[in-house]
Design a protein around this nucleic acid. Structure first.
Lengths: 201, 201, 201, 201
DNA sequence: GATGAATGAGACTTCATTCAT
DNA sequence: AATGAATGAAGTCTCATTCAT
């Protein structure tokens, strides 16, 4: 990696931490420069604008995330055709690990989503659509194979499942006791609810 | 209502709109003053600090919300003992109407939650706990009455249901086609999933 | 005069001096603020932009100049119908006094003319056209009265005369020996050349 | 021409364009470097300072101009002894062509004259004095030969004539319709005024 | 000899906050 | 009680200049 690329990385890394910590607009470029160990002028050599720093940072993060989400799980999935329960568990844990890895990125994206069109577009295009497309095709396989009900449209199902998982992650993010083991148990319960419902048979 | 209270209200109203529109830290007190139709000095007569304006605004909003959520539905609930499905539907639609009414407040709370301890505490204390306590006692009634499974702890169930509904609201907030009718249908589907699951019996 | 108008004046005055001394773009707002005896923030309360400060300053100066040039000499002119020689002398000396009074303004206008469209427009509209219109009508009176040649178009004549006077002012501005007496003599010589030419009869 | 001289030329050329376009102090060295097709570092290898770039550029330009003005016209003048009218016409058109050729240089010199002593000195020494000395000796020849009046001192005459021509050039520079033909006509009129005056005989 | 990455001082500008009126 | 003028600290950004490669 060239030196200039290293500098760019250092700046994006520092910006990622500070943006996620105090939000884009409360973060100052001087603080970012200091954390990155470069002068403020250098920040603007690489990113002509504070906003551009945000957008490039998110774009770069999402690209990396995109690779991680697209490649890794599909390989594991095709390797062993699992039942719905196990599949969802794998997907959720994989997402959880990604969540941990990309925690800062997600925090930034979720926060700045509503203030910056560019971020919303990246989010819609590279996260929502991608996740939906991966899940929906698999979901419909399970319908065809007779495991899942046909009278629930896959969009609603996926949305509901995503919401359950999303809020679970949030709870863990904001709580102190957030071990991987607890997460495993919580995910299993959540999937149980999703597949079997809470109603008594 | 006294004149001074009116002024305070005007300022909080204006602040609510601007905070929700561009975020707390990107909002400027001068813009708030202008929208409220008062001078900048006046803002600081009522709120010694921009941050205090945020906190008092959220506190006030949450108190009003608290009354709305605590009183209205409980009356309706006790009036007619419903089955779980109908109860959840009522609750969800009621929450949806509240969401619409308190849209700005929620947007602010969700955004500033992670940057301001005071907001997080208010949120935990007056929203999470309140909602959880209302729902969990009812939920356990349904367990006892044999409608719901005993092997799912009420916290997990409530969390999952909240997540499903939350993300549904989000989808509507960010989409263009967001009529009340569509919401009614979506909520019914979501409750169906929650109670019966997606798995084939 | 209200206090706020006083402040605005102080800032424009300071800006006028510094702009004329080192040019618009080499002048710094902090220096202007210091010279005006206000804080830098105050400068931007009155002029949202450094550029706006320049434009408003020029506009204001030109308006004052416009009044001075339009009203004063016309009164004197109508009072006593003079011959061409005396008329031009009066006009030139009047212009010289204005030049001394508006020295800074002219320096700024002449310098920034070519970099800022707004200034050029103000200059064309309020100085060139005004001066031309005042002079040309009078000039044509002299033609009609048989004092001046008919075969020189008034625009060329006025342009030539203005150039002679302009460069004379410039010489005085850049020289050390620039008394009013010397100017009077130089103007008389210049007018002699203009009316009689340098060629021998 | 050596390679290093070429580079120096390229930089001065680029600087000349940008300085004349937006003024010395609003021009940035990075822009100059880009336009010259060299790196920013290179600019500072050849010119230790932005200011030095300006001064050397002007010095170099004035030297070239000096040769052009001193050599060419004198040859033509001595070749054919003309009358005053024709002589002035030749000189003016020659100056006009030089003006077109050195347009950028003149614009820079005129603008920076009052902000940089070095430029003013170069201007006075190499342009004013030179032009004055060339013209004044010739002018006095015409006095002696009885063509021109003796009662006008040559400095005043030359100054007046220069002003007329200067402002004519300015008018052309700022107007759209600025053909060489129009200039020829305007110069002839101007000279007519200069020699014969506008007064009726 | 040339490059372009890095710097840091300083530019313009914003804004929460104070205070005389 | 209310105003809005004034502040000054801090923010984003620019740019001449240096220096390792």
């Amino acid at each position: 990696m060239k030196k200039s690329e290293q500098t760019e990385q250092k700046i994006m890394l520092a910006a990622g931490e500070i943006f996620s910590e105090k939000g884009y607009s409360a973060a100052s470029t001087s603080e970012i420069a200091k954390k990155a160990g470069v002068s403020e002028g250098t920040v603007f050599r690489y990113f002509s604008t504070k906003k551009e720093l945000l957008v490039r940072l998110v774009k770069y993060g999402i690209e990396m995330f995109s690779e991680d989400i697209a490649i890794k799980p599909l390989i594991e999935l095709t390797r062993a055709k699992k039942n719905g329960q196990d599949f969802l568990y794998e997907v959720s844990m994989n997402r959880y690990d990604l969540w941990v890895k990309y925690r800062n990125l997600f925090k930034i994206v979720i926060h700045e989503l509503s203030f910056h069109m560019e971020i919303k577009e990246l989010f819609d295009k590279y996260i929502c659509e991608k996740v939906e497309s991966i899940l929906s095709s698999t979901y419909e396989d399970y319908i065809k194979s007779g495991d899942f009900r046909e009278d629930i449209d896959s969009h609603s199902a996926i949305r509901s499942f995503s919401g359950m998982i999303f809020i679970l992650f949030m709870e863990h993010a904001h709580s102190n006791e957030n071990s991987r083991e607890k997460m495993q148990r919580d995910i299993k319960t959540t999937i149980d609810i999703f597949i079997n419902g809470v109603g008594k048979k």
